[in-house]
Design a binder for these strands. Structure first.
Lengths: 198, 198
DNA sequence: GTTAATGGAATGAACGTTCATTCCTTTTGG
DNA sequence: CCAAAAGGAATGAACGTTCATTCCATTAAC
């Protein structure tokens, strides 16, 4: 087991605990136990608790951004781009709902440093740019782009709430997954209608 | 100054601190200082820290529900009811954005007791029922009502994020208020389109 | 054999809470 | 009316506990 693996072990344990209980309520001993390491070791890889939060936040942001930007269909229609964003969004969420929930819970908390905020803004700007371009092209309704991103982001987050709390963080059953997939499809259609209604 | 006033003093201080920093990160000494009372006094009015959270949460929920249900236009059109909900939602949010932010931050946290969850569900059911009735009447689009409530609730919450963080929790300037009013109007129209698009 | 990594007991600061005491208002006695 | 007593609210220093972090002996790697 390399040192890199141990860092990942710690981050994964922290992700689960932070998303379940929040950053403040999560105790270092909990992380230690879940990661299967000892108190001293954690401080070989991270300066302190806050450092874990920030490294985890940035890793999460980069993961999401990478997933959304890799193979992004720049030259296709807005509908295709919209579907691409939703399809990959759903994949990210269903694969690891804790990630989104962790982000939503900690997004604006104290404890996030400049670098973390920049990582968030990168993702936010990506969505914002998509909306702005759609508005310029006359495909999306006019107005403050924040309203549309609020709908999209808020809708996604609230569905994650459902995923997380429906079974107390356990893995999703097949029927749950189908149910969520259906909600996701409805949300996509509803958002698209909202975006394009004139 | 009656004893009731002091309880309110504590709850108001807690509301501001909880919404800014979250429940866990808020320290009792902070509440004491902001409320202008001493350490012992707080335990005359509340059993413990968690009790403050729950009493505050329930007070917040009841405030919101009262504001939404008083003079509710049961016998008017769905559009009128929709506008009523939005109008009163905006009023609540602009008057005290911390309230919504506090709720959004603590909604699913550990520490909330049965009674608090019931208070939340009462409000949630109110919205859910409105959506269900609209669906039954064929006015709103079909599908899982949670998708529509996610859009509405998520949208509102995310706009509150903007209000709170735009000026670090200070009172809103007049131009800010106009800006928010505009966003709110856009959100209302967009949500209505999303709700009613077939 | 040397260096780096690990474990876990030890540490001290900070936390929520308590409680003996003080303060102030209200009641009682004459 | 006034003075003394009582009652309840408020105080803040002190307490036990819990937390993040450190330290150092032990183990693993090469």
């Amino acid at each position: 087991m390399t040192s890199n693996d141990k860092e990942t072990l710690i981050l994964n344990a922290a992700l689960q605990l932070f998303s379940e209980n929040g950053y403040e309520a999560t105790r270092i001993p909990q992380i230690i136990k879940k990661a299967g390491i000892s108190a001293g070791t954690i401080y070989r890889y991270f300066h302190n608790k806050e450092d874990i939060l920030n490294k985890l936040f940035q890793r999460s942001m980069n993961k999401m951004l990478l997933s959304l930007t890799a193979n992004y269909p720049h030259d296709k229609s807005f509908k295709d781009q919209f579907d691409f964003i939703f399809m990959h969004g759903e994949k990210i969420i269903v694969t690891n709902p804790q990630l989104i929930y962790f982000i939503a819970k900690n997004e604006f908390d104290r404890g996030l440093n400049q670098q973390s905020h920049q990582a968030f803004m990168k993702l936010f700007d990506f969505l914002r740019n998509f909306i702005l371009k759609g508005q310029e092209a006359g495909v999306f309704r006019q107005g403050n782009p924040r309203v549309l991103s609020a709908l999209l982001y808020g809708g996604l987050t609230f569905i994650v709430d459902f995923i997380i709390h429906h079974n107390n963080g356990a893995l999703l059953s097949e029927s749950d997954q189908q149910n969520i997939h259906q909600m996701y499809a409805q949300l996509r259609q509803t958002c698209w209608d909202a975006f394009t209604a004139k």
